[in-house]
Design a protein around this nucleic acid. Structure first.
Lengths: 152, 152
DNA sequence: CCTTGAAGCTATAGCCACTAGAGATCCTAT
DNA sequence: ATAGGATCTCTAGTGGCTATAGCTTCAAGG
């Protein structure tokens, strides 16, 4: 049996995050010690590792819940699992494409100025102000900011 | 003078988002009509368009606030603007690299199964469970999920 | 002038996937 | 027995919005 701290060390998932997963029903509530502390078995560790890796692969928690449900079926349908994985793949590809459009624009913007702009006509600021100067259709990337959502 | 709805149509930023930007101080509070409705001038529209495009380029709101402050300086330093743009560029590049690692793994996982797995040994599920089978170091992308954050 | 309906107002709560903190309790090693 | 690390619950905060409720204001038509 593992304590929550051991689970955390063995899986790489932080302790509060494990409790959060339990709270939202992604991890089953484990047994408790006499003093009300969580005690996990090997299967729970497996599942937590599954979740962790799926998160690293960019799956949303609800997609992960779907995968877990598939696992628990008597005859786990590869078909469904593959469909979920492919949906994830195409989402990732879409994000890459949008980010590459951003990269093009940002490169153009950042390199357009060589530090010699006079006051009031900085090329960087002008470029950010004006979408018309963009060379790609980098419109509406649904995942614009985003970075440190799950990041420490 | 523009109403908030006109501002929204002219900029592509939704009405509640405009109010939100005002609330957090990214847009200055405009004048009000006799009946307490917001009335914007051309400069405010310019600024909102600037914010909107910067968001499309992936800048965080605090970076945008920095850019706006630069604009308002008597002698806008291109140097600083360029530094901010370059930081954004390298962040975008990092995200692309991490997403490409994910793409590699997801492709491998999704294509590893041809729909013929027997019960209990679906390759997709096994691959998600086991990071050791991954061919890239796709660890800890800080921006894993993310998609529909600002998206409608 | 009066009505109607769209557009505006404020305030609050919710989204995701966590993270941080307070204050209390438990477990283990000495 | 005690020290101190680990754990417990609960609440609130993050970013960048979005949604709802219940009200008021504005502009056009009759």
């Amino acid at each position: 049996m593992f304590s929550i701290g051991q689970m955390s060390r063995q899986s790489g998932v932080k302790v509060p995050t494990i409790r959060y997963y339990e709270q939202i029903g992604l991890l089953p509530a484990p047994d408790r010690s006499a003093g009300n502390q969580r005690r996990y078995d090997q299967a729970a560790l497996q599942q937590l590792r599954f979740i962790r890796h799926a998160r690293q692969l960019g799956f949303h928690l609800d997609a992960i819940a779907g995968l877990i449900e598939l696992q628990s079926l008597p005859d786990p349908s590869c078909h469904d699992a593959r469909r979920i994985a492919r949906a994830q793949l195409s989402e990732v590809r879409g994000r890459i494409a949008r980010l590459q459009a951003l990269e093009t624009e940002l490169d153009r913007i950042a390199e357009g100025c060589h530090g010699d702009c006079g006051p009031g006509d900085c090329v960087v600021l002008a470029s950010v102000a004006d979408h018309a100067s963009c060379v790609t259709a980098h419109d509406a990337p649904p995942d614009l900011g985003d970075s440190p959502r799950g990041a420490p």
